[in-house]
Design a protein around this nucleic acid. Structure first.
Lengths: 258, 258
DNA sequence: TCGCAACGCCGTACACCGTTCGGAGCGGCT
DNA sequence: AGCCGCTCCGAACGGTGTACGGCGTTGCGA
């Protein structure tokens, strides 16, 4: 069983030729690395595919090794959520003279950004309802602060700005939840959106025969449920809310002046 | 091992005195019954406590018996969601002469109803993102139809009514998701809302020292995060959206006339 | 240079999960 | 009587989260 020493200049490195301590240079596993890989796994295989064992395997580690860097699976998921929210570009604040157009456009972009992040990581919607503490995580705080800065710089009182943000964010999360639920239901059945619409729509229309308005909606406007139709529907929803904000903003500022 | 036959008139029922076939009088298990019990279990112990075995036990049945009435756990959860949405009282439609006040009030009630249902069954928010097909379930369709009827009777075009409903519902689901996540995070730690606020708030304020606006918000307006503050915050959000709807409604109707 | 406490890693084990399968008991039909 | 079909269920399979104890290794104080 004696191993033959090889010349270091030829062939693969062996026990004898390898530098003395190849492993354990770094701790080999870090919270950052774990969370990043978890997000990758979640993105590619969905929420029900995330298990400590599978995640460990992807990192060439045992399942239980993860627990030295992360206390819980729940905490891991919370970290993953914060991690993807960090993707969000912050709206840049231009100053009060930017005018209403800039103000509105910035909020629209911000809302679209949040929606895009959620739709890009659809597993988020099945998790947002569980991890209550995300809203105190660093990424979300960064976003909130920027959002509030934007609104306050445009002239809103902080409290009003907070209310406005709540409405926009609430709407965004709700819409994205509904959309992502729909999309992942499609994905689970392994159909492309259009194919499935073609197959499902007749059944839905049949099921709505006691509901004339829904029936009319689905028979005549089903195209809105698909692709870009959803994007523009979301955007016009945001605009509708912005109208409301602007109106109540105007009302309040005249209220304060008079 | 001979058992003594007892007189049926005395003592506890035994093998001999019991009616011959206690089981199997009725099918003993029905989908309705299963779903109802599932909701009860979810309400009392939360989403992670729902297992087929535990649910079966509660119904004096084996876990696998459930599968004759329900194809899946996923389907069971979807049925449970639909079941609680059936609680919702439908807004009554009064006719077009009701005036704007009635119209707005009805939508407010409807939105508050949906929010209340979700907050009454907080497990819903961790599930709404998964069960995409709820929106084709009977209860949800009933609600949508009533909602659309309400808006259409008030003079909106069906498409506009649908958009308006989407915004209100989206906002409602989103807000309720955030709220329920917060509440269930508290519940998981077994604290009452006020106690937890007292303990957590200092830490949160400390964590926001690089975010002046969030910091100001939490130090001066934290009361809004508690109890009735959330209720009224939600309501004023709905009203803000209604303002937007009304404005765009007015704009469109003059657009059509001119 | 040694010894030792601390650290990161992981194999094993436990309790539990969703679901499949085969079969048992039974009502109703032929 | 014989069969069918329906409901119910025990056992089993392959998976899960994570507690625990033991492992090699490392950094530090002596």
């Amino acid at each position: 069983m004696a191993a033959k020493p090889e010349d270091g200049s030829s062939g693969i490195p062996t026990l004898w030729t390898r530098p003395q301590r190849p492993r354990r240079e770094q701790p080999a596993l870090s919270r950052e690395q774990i969370v990043t890989e978890a997000v990758a796994l979640l993105d590619s295989d969905g929420i029900e595919a995330l298990s400590m064992r599978k995640l460990g395997a992807r990192l060439n580690a045992g399942a239980t090794s993860l627990y030295t860097h992360v206390t819980n699976k729940d905490e891991l998921v919370a970290l993953a959520v914060d991690h993807v929210f960090a993707e969000l570009p912050l709206p840049e604040t231009t100053g009060p003279e930017g005018g209403a157009k800039v103000w509105r456009a910035a909020i629209e972009e911000c809302a679209e950004g949040v929606r895009a992040v959620i739709l890009r990581h659809p597993w988020m919607v099945s998790v947002l309802g569980d991890v209550g503490m995300v809203y105190f995580g660093p990424s979300w705080m960064r976003l909130s602060e920027a959002f509030l800065t934007l609104l306050e710089t445009s002239g809103l009182e902080l409290v009003d700005a907070n209310e406005a943000m709540g409405v926009v964010i609430g709407y965004t999360i709700g819409s994205a939840t509904v959309e992502a639920a729909w999309l992942s239901a499609l994905a689970k059945r392994g159909r492309k959106e259009q194919e499935w619409m073609d197959q499902l729509l007749p059944a839905v229309i049949e099921a709505t025969k006691d509901h004339p308005r829904l029936n009319r909606l689905y028979t005549t406007h089903a195209y809105e449920e698909v692709e870009g139709g959803r994007d523009s529907a979301f955007l016009s929803g945001v605009r509708l809310i912005l109208d409301g904000i602007e109106a109540s903003w105007a009302a309040r500022s005249t209220d304060r002046q008079g």
